[in-house]
Amino acid sequence: MNSAAFIVTAIFTVAAALAAATLRNLMHAALSFAAAFVGIAALFFLLGAEFVGLALVFIYIGAVAVLVVFTILLTRRDVGKDRGFNWGGATVAVAVFACLTWSILKTQSLAIGAPHIATLTVKRIGAALMTTYVWPLQCVGILLTAALIGALILVMEERR
């Protein structure tokens, strides 16, 4: 694992996520959201999970970010009315971050390096999906179909 690439990726990811959470302009925030997911996918690549990184790029940047942009455009009249910052929420978020970081740094068994492992090939992932994980795979298929139908029904014009 290359540490220089890792540091650059980590800083980029956190900065893009922070921009997505705090920028006033909705469109800029949506683009920073896509950039943050590029960074997270790069972290997955560094961790040796290339297939998940690619799936993240396809699903989040190819589908979810485009959906977010479409929703922003469809609800355009409301853009710009997002009033200021809620400092109570910021305090809770900082407190949660402090607690998590403190407990991670306190736990000595987490300070370990990565062991050497064989490369995870797509063939192995496919074999596992078709054997051990075939029932979860079918359930996810049903869930995605139900979500598709549910989303369609939600946005359908109502007849009175």
Binding site: S3, F6, A21, N86, V92, F97, I104
Partner: peptide, 26 residues
């Protein structure tokens, strides 16, 4: 080389940023 702790701290940072967006934006 980055240890597991570093990744967990990055993940905690991202989680807190998401929580910040959920709690502070309207």
């Amino acid at each position: 080389t980055p240890t597991l702790q570093v990744f967990l701290i990055i993940s905690a940072t991202l989680f807190s940023i998401g929580l910040l967006a959920v709690l502070s934006r309207r």
